[in-house]
Write a protein that binds this DNA or RNA. Structure first.
Lengths: 207, 207
DNA sequence: GGACAAGTGGACTAGGTGGTCCACTCCTAG
DNA sequence: CTAGGAGTGGACCACCTAGTCCACTTGTCC
């Protein structure tokens, strides 16, 4: 029997574990997974070493919990907007929300994208978790596009999957360029182009 | 007079400095700027601490030299292909080269993009250097699109700058998705969509 | 109230980190 | 040949890191 990280068995333990993940998520967002220390996390969480190692096997395990948390947050936040995505107007509304958020928060980049870039070639488990997060996130859009196609809002030749991939690449790339240059316009240009591309698959209108 | 990193004054010194940057570039590519230690770099370079601190003020200064090196490499490598960019065929050729490279190298992501993602919010100088690199890189494409527009290969309404930004977002995003999922197809989907979007600005043909 | 497990505090360790320092070699100019 | 600065080797330091360990508290069940 190998000693593995333990799930908390009491309400008190559950809250301690949550506090640690929360503080770790903040620290990772600010300094990256490799750049933040457990001591910093624990001080912010008001917890001790023994608590950390009571709930997590090691630092990588904690980082994985942070990833799961971030993936969950992202899907919880955008899921409602995306799961009912059903028209060009819905897509435009989503894009405009992304652009507004990015500008409002000062071009922080994508939490998932940032983690992916740091961890993809250093922690295989983290990479798979993040790839899964991207995949689920993208699937909302792909399914929305498929619904639009079924309803005749997209021509037959459109490939919802490839279009969804392209939309996400534009989003991630736009966020990275904005973050690097601190110029929000890059994301706008990226998503505007992506939207125009999607529109080109609208069936010829009666106008 | 503040003591600052010194440029080597002899050929021998220049070669030492080069060796250190080369080893540092490799280490940074493999483990990230924050994840590689000076001891590792120096061992790989066959150099000593005193050499490092003879040529660089501190670790950040070395990282900045690595960034300058990578920016230079990227522009040197793609510059020839991009500075004469003049037609849709040239763009397609560039895209295909990017896709092929990405697949051949096992989806390593963009060296500049990876550094940008790690350093953008941790080292302001590095951020500005990387933003400048992106900017120069992008300007090749924007100027190419402007040439195409001047020659009538792009309609008047096309905005070369915004199109260039969108192309780069697709590239960076596609590289990140490929790196995270280890699936080269994401970059292909991203660039195919970007290319189709560009093509939509071709003037109506005689066909 | 006592037994027992979950949860906690925090001192401690072993190894690594960036950075300093100084004695030394190498090279060149005169 | 010699002087002096550029270049080099590597011991050394203070600090920080992830991770260990054990005595202790808290809460619950009988």
């Amino acid at each position: 029997m190998v000693a593995v990280a333990q799930e908390p068995l009491t309400e008190r333990g559950r809250r301690s574990r949550e506090r640690i993940i929360e503080a770790a998520a903040a620290a990772v967002a600010e300094r990256g997974a490799g750049g933040c220390s457990l001591d910093q996390v624990l001080e912010a969480a008001g917890a001790s070493k023994s608590q950390l190692y009571h709930y997590f096997a090691d630092k990588d395990d904690l980082v994985r919990a942070v990833i799961a948390r971030r993936v969950g947050e992202t899907l919880d936040c955008q899921g409602p907007m995306l799961s009912e995505l059903d028209s060009f107007a819905d897509i435009r509304r989503w894009f405009d929300w992304l652009i507004a958020q990015n500008e409002k928060l000062g071009c922080p980049g994508c939490p998932l994208g940032t983690l992916a870039n740091e961890l993809a070639d250093r922690d295989e488990t983290a990479r798979v978790d993040l790839a899964g997060g991207f995949d689920t996130w993208m699937s909302y859009v792909i399914e929305g596009l498929a619904r639009m196609q079924a309803r005749g809002e997209l021509v037959e030749q459109a490939d919802p999957q490839r279009l969804g991939h392209a939309v996400f690449a534009s989003l991630q790339g736009g966020l990275l360029l904005s973050k690097t240059t601190k110029v929000p316009q890059y994301l706008r240009d990226a998503l505007d182009a992506s939207y125009a591309h999607l529109l080109s698959f609208a069936p010829p209108g009666p106008s």
